[in-house]
């Protein structure tokens, strides 16, 4: 029965693994719902912000904020959002691949790339392959706050204002549905001002303090921060969805493996019984 015992031990160990993966699947599912909710709650702010910025930009056509200005592109800043933890399928790999493809295109056009990394996986990756990283943040957990990104966003905005980068991109996963997440590269600077057809007649705000520039500056900074926040939150939703699927697959695989092993176990057990019987019968025949 030595073989049967070995198989039994193996089945037990796989069952334990299956328990863990099943628990992780359920945890990811519940976290995913929570993050999706956060994603939805962040929408009104960005929408309102964009409206106000639109009004301001239209009210002051003579003043071009540098964030709205198109410049010749010699250098590009990229904010890359990755997860802190693994076990989420090909999520980070796909994102890094898509980003790298774009970076290669840029470097072929002699455009330098400055990186800003959010998340541990991106950090580990660029540590190995190199790259000019100007800002980095990680260990954000499942419910990051906007204030967690203030530093990295400020570094990138300063770079933009100093003319060290001429455009800023945000690279994160887009949540399409639970089964599908896709890498998404979005330009956040310079802002493409939306045309506002509702604004027919000219009107302007009363400004307090009487300085539209300062207010616009603050608004735009907040807006970009909220964009980065949205990107990170969406990426977390993607992470949880991807982990849920990966863990579901792992649980299914474990079930299959257990089935096979059980079959092998029964076969071994029956073989042992048959052998014993033959031995007994043979023994009886001799007597």
């Amino acid at each position: 029965m030595a073989v049967a015992k070995e198989i039994r031990t193996k089945i037990r160990s796989i069952k334990n693994t299956q328990k863990i993966t099943r628990a992780m699947e359920m945890v990811a599912a519940s976290k995913m719902r929570k993050v999706q909710d956060r994603m939805r709650r962040a929408q009104p702010y960005a929408k309102k912000m964009l409206q106000v910025i639109g009004h301001l930009a239209h009210g002051h056509p003579e003043y071009r904020h540098p964030f709205l200005d198109q410049r010749e592109i010699k250098s590009i800043g990229v904010i890359i959002v990755t997860t802190d933890r693994g076990l989420c399928g090909g999520l980070n790999t796909n994102l890094l691949r898509a980003t790298l493809r774009r970076m290669k295109e840029w470097s072929d056009q002699n455009i330098t790339v400055q990186l800003c990394l959010i998340g541990k996986k991106g950090e580990a990756f660029f540590k190995r392959i190199g790259g000019s990283v100007v800002a980095q943040v990680d260990h954000l957990g499942d419910a990051p706050a906007v204030t967690d990104f203030v530093g990295v966003v400020k570094v990138m905005l300063d770079q933009y204002l100093e003319g060290k980068v001429d455009a800023l991109y945000l690279c994160s996963n887009e949540f399409i549905n639970t089964m599908r997440q896709e890498p998404h590269l979005q330009q956040i600077l310079p802002l493409v001002p939306s045309e506002n057809p509702k604004l027919k007649h000219y009107w302007d705000y009363i400004y307090e303090p009487d300085n539209a520039k300062e207010l616009l500056d603050k608004l735009l900074t907040r807006y970009i921060e909220s964009q980065v926040y949205r990107g990170v939150i969406e990426n977390i939703a993607c992470e949880q969805a991807a982990r849920m699927i990966a863990m579901k697959n792992a649980t299914d695989n474990a079930a299959e493996l257990i089935n096979e092993l059980e079959l092998a176990y029964h076969k071994a057990r029956q073989a042992a019984i048959t052998r014993e019987l033959t031995e007994i019968v043979a023994g009886a025949a001799v007597v």
Binding site: L100, S107, C116, L117, I129, G130, G131, V134, A135, V137
Partner: peptide
């Protein structure tokens, strides 16, 4: 954020090894 980036790239490889 800057310091963290600098610490991360202690050996400072500034070009990506594609």
């Amino acid at each position: 954020a800057k310091e963290r980036a600098e610490k991360m790239l202690a050996e400072k490889v500034s070009t990506v090894d594609f």
